[in-house]
Design a protein around this nucleic acid. Sequence first.
DNA 1: GCCAGATAGTTACATATGAAACTATCTGGC
DNA 2: GCCAGATAGTTTCATATGTAACTATCTGGC
Lengths: 164, 164
Amino acid sequence: MRDDGPRDVKAATRAHLVLDNFWPYRLSVISNRISDAIARQYSDRFGLSVPEWRVMAVLGGMPGLSARDVAQRTAMDKVRVSRAVANLVTVGRVSRRTDAQDGRITRLSLTPRGQDIYDQIVPMALKLEEDVFSTLSAEDRELLDRVMAKLAHQADRLGAFPVS
Amino acid sequence: MRDDGPRDVKAATRAHLVLDNFWPYRLSVISNRISDAIARQYSDRFGLSVPEWRVMAVLGGMPGLSARDVAQRTAMDKVRVSRAVANLVTVGRVSRRTDAQDGRITRLSLTPRGQDIYDQIVPMALKLEEDVFSTLSAEDRELLDRVMAKLAHQADRLGAFPVS
DNA sequence: GCCAGATAGTTACATATGAAACTATCTGGC
DNA sequence: GCCAGATAGTTTCATATGTAACTATCTGGC
């Protein structure tokens, strides 16, 4: 009996996927763990969501950005940015003023209170980054840098790019 | 005039964080891009959400797992698994039967239709993985493997571990 | 100048999510 | 045997999210 029927032929040639060996999955799990650990810190202490912190993070370094600029630099869509900014304005951590030249644009900045919080979170975040990545040798970091650049490039090529 | 006042002293010593240079952020953005590109494929063609595909992915390799097992192996919480399984059962892609020994446990498997879909998605996913990661040399992959193991370990140490 | 089409940002709606409460079942110590 | 506490899984509820529709403003061609 040489033919076991279609079902078993299929089974015999079946491709398998083991999540634990699947690069995209592993990358996702690790990345989320690290992000969550950092988010927990500023969320616990300052009641900030991830989108809110991202907005503050870019405004801390570049005051006066528009919401659209912030969206680009944080890889978030404009709705998320809009809502995060609305919350931050409500609690007095970000200020908003309409651009003098173009009435559609709002210029965003940290308020002094927002700046205070930024000044407290940045060292925490940098320390956590250091905690996680310091076990890597200089060589490892360099490799990771190259690898991530390559992966970013490949991901873009896939058209994985609806970052409005 | 040697003292510019507290505000400027602070400014002079201010730590800065540039998202584009911040490892956890870069990792997150790249990981999401890759995951989204893959998700788009099976979402478009088979109407599967990420949690649903993850459930099918582990059941394809290990039929008979409990929901709890699935949750562990997919790094999802039990609520997400419960809902994903409920949807998959509704559309006839997964079957559920109560364990003979322990009435609390349900044994999950792919139905023949579910298996068909699994058999179509796996090669697609593996090809996309290949597309993205094939630019890395064998050496790069090996190093990345070590680096990711280290990062996973460090992330765990941080207590980034509420994976119910 | 004026209007069609573009752009910045917000709102509405439908869906996805997680924490906590809940139900059903099991287990170990008595 | 029986019950207090543990475990598997579901449901509830409040919040977060993305798409699409909307408002307000601007711009280039006429």
